[in-house]
């Protein structure tokens, strides 16, 4: 027994020496111009049994200015039958609190640059073995480039220091899932256009119109040539019943991509709201329905029905205009053209 223990200690020591030797020859994983960052003001919520999802989500939301407890988040993310929280729901829940969630690049430098920008990063770790996974959510709140370490709020630990190498092992086994929580209008450090627009579009479904506007406005500033950014802005204005501003944004999108069915459909509905059913019909006639995805095709068919109902109701013979919309449409055109140049410029 004694011998065995001594042998164990000896091999452990040998192992440590090997490991340290290994560290010395391998390059550091954490690299940052700031050297050492620790977001000490990040709240800490020690987790209860199985509740690392709600606890770590409360931590990143708190850092983003949302005061919420793990108990408050439990009904939104905890799944009793699975004794844990699923990534998809962890990603969706911040929308209830007026925040976007954005999955960052699955690379350590992306985590480090978010920390450098002052944002803690929610990660999924796997401490198990192949075929025996042990999933755990934690929040990275700091790094130390000199020591090649990461600092986490995790479980019951307020400040858990991990070597970058061990962190990567657990993160790799969790498929390198990492999330940041953004205020409307805030962009991640190195945003991917498509991924950000997707996050903003998912946010739009539950967000207040002005919050959605802020999220898409930030996208329109970052990628002025992306039609979807302008469409999102326009739809936020449409929901506020500011049809004039909505039409202007949809027209910007259409100038960027004249064949954009979504922009064309929504412009038609905006025109209809403004009492311009005939102009709306003309917009809809320009849409090539073939090749649209199902959701878009349904929207276009529905728009058509509404526009035709209005045309029938007003008994306007097709081809005879009683609307004063052509003028107002060109008015939009010239006005938004004017504003595009100012919008796409510095901002």
């Amino acid at each position: 027994m004694n011998v065995r223990r001594r042998a164990g200690v000896a091999s452990l020591a040998a192992c440590l020496v090997v490991a340290m030797g290994g560290c010395a020859t391998q390059p550091a994983l954490v690299e940052s111009p700031l050297g050492h960052v620790e977001l000490v003001d990040t709240p800490f919520h020690p987790q209860r049994r199985y509740q690392c999802g709600p606890a770590s989500l409360a931590t990143v939301l708190g850092a983003s200015g949302v005061a919420v407890t793990p108990g408050g988040l439990e009904p939104l993310v905890y799944l009793p039958g699975r004794k844990g929280s699923l990534q998809v729901e962890m990603q969706a829940a911040p929308r209830s609190y007026g925040r976007l969630s954005y999955r960052i690049e699955p690379e350590l430098p992306a985590v480090v640059s978010e920390l450098d920008a002052g944002r803690p990063v929610l990660v999924l770790h796997n401490y198990g073995l192949p075929g025996w996974p042990r999933w755990h959510y934690a929040v990275v709140i700091g790094h130390n480039a000199q020591a090649d370490q990461l600092i986490l709020r995790s479980g019951m630990e307020r400040r858990e220091v991990w070597s970058a190498r061990n962190f990567m092992r657990a993160w790799d086994n969790g498929d390198r899932w990492a999330l940041v929580v953004l205020q409307p209008g805030e962009l991640p450090k190195a945003p991917d256009k498509d991924r950000y627009l997707e996050a903003a579009a998912a946010f739009e479904n539950v967000a207040a119109p002005h919050d959605a506007w802020l999220a898409f406005d930030a996208a329109a500033r970052a990628w002025p040539a992306a039609p979807v950014a302008w469409i999102g802005r326009g739809t936020a204005k449409y929901r506020e019943r500011n049809f004039h501003a909505a039409a202007a944004d949809y027209e910007v999108a259409l100038r960027l991509e004249p064949g954009h069915a979504g922009a064309r459909n929504n412009l038609a509905m905006t025109l209809l709201e403004q009492g311009c059913a005939r102009a709306a019909r003309q917009q809809l006639d320009m849409i090539d329905v073939a090749g649209l995805n199902e959701a878009m095709r349904e929207a276009v068919i529905d728009s058509s029905r509404q526009v035709d109902a209005k045309l029938g109701l007003d008994k306007v013979p097709y081809g005879i205009s009683t609307e004063n919309c052509i003028g107002s449409s060109t008015h939009h055109e010239s006005q938004s053209q004017g504003s595009v140049s100012t919008r796409t410029a510095p901002l």
Partner: peptide
């Protein structure tokens, strides 16, 4: 079936992942 906003298409239907997503209306 078409609850969200009468006729107007949500931006979600226009983002990159929506291209190969075929759930809408009743199926959704």
């Amino acid at each position: 079936v078409n609850t969200a906003q009468a006729g107007i298409a949500g931006t979600e239907a226009m983002v990159s992942t929506a291209r190969d997503l075929h759930i809408a209306g009743l199926q959704g």
